[in-house]
Amino acid sequence: MSITKYKTLKDVPREEFLVSGTSLCAGCGALLVIRLFHKALGDNVVWVNAAGCVTLMATFPYTPLKSSWFYTAMGSAPAGAQGIRDALDILIKKGKIDPTENLKVVVVTGDGAASDIGLQSTSGAIHRNLDFFYLCVDNEAYGNTGFQASSSSPIGSGTTTTRPTHLYPMGNFLPKKDLFEIWRSHRPPYVATISPSHVVDMFRKVEKSLNFKGPKLFLALSPCPTGWGAEVSESVKLARLAVETGIWPLKEAVYGEVTHTYIPPKRRPVEDYLKVQRRFAHLFKPVKNEGAIAEIQKQVDEYWSKVVH
């Protein structure tokens, strides 16, 4: 990576843009991601939001943010960003507002909005080369509505619409949609995956992306203790496990060119990650589903076998 301000955690700026007191669950990974991401972005930001858990950060008359926020609709936050970006550009160009009034336009949505109902809107915005950031906080299901399956739910996970039963022992039997690749296929200037456990990696990526004009998209693993059935205190630990098992690769793509920014020296078995979450409990109890676990392990191994070290 090129020259960076961020060498260690000590370099993380102290300024907070998000104050405490939101109604999000204790230990919410998405909240931590947004807090850290905002520090990396700096000030002068307007967030454009689609319906999801993080929508409840700001409910009248309260907002935790010191920056602007615009809740639009579930399916069209990127189009909302388009309107704001275009309006600011026009008003500055026509001299109706001062250039110092300019803002970074940042879409923040869940995985359901990003991978399902809002995918068309995202594709349009990337195609038009909209100058914006997109932060997807991926908790791998429709969290806000009670953790139903989204197309981002991993295979083998139980959700409230993919309950494991004797007819469906895997729970969710569909694969997780590869949003990174979908985004990358548009060849935007910058796409990256991030994890709240790997903070320096996250900061360097945001730092790098700030050099590009056009779409800059971030897919953030966002542990959800409530939906995943995990210890609230272990959100960061789980995110780290996802990286160390190789389930959540940390990578970036600059104009489509992929680089892995962290390669786990010795990948831990996926079982370590699966067994501590209730959404995967059916793979272990009442009898261990060795086949399903081996299949998940195989998919991870196959992924990494194609990664050039």
């Binding site: 102290r14 907070e16 405490s20 007191g21 939101t22 999000l24 990974g29 931590l32 205190s233 959100s235």
Partner: peptide
Amino acid sequence: IYCPESCISLDEQGYPLINYDSCKGCLVCA
């Protein structure tokens, strides 16, 4: 770094202070 709630701050020497008015007790810090 890891408090999701922004309720830990650092004093001049870098020691952490918890804002108990807001801390939800998730224990991610612990």
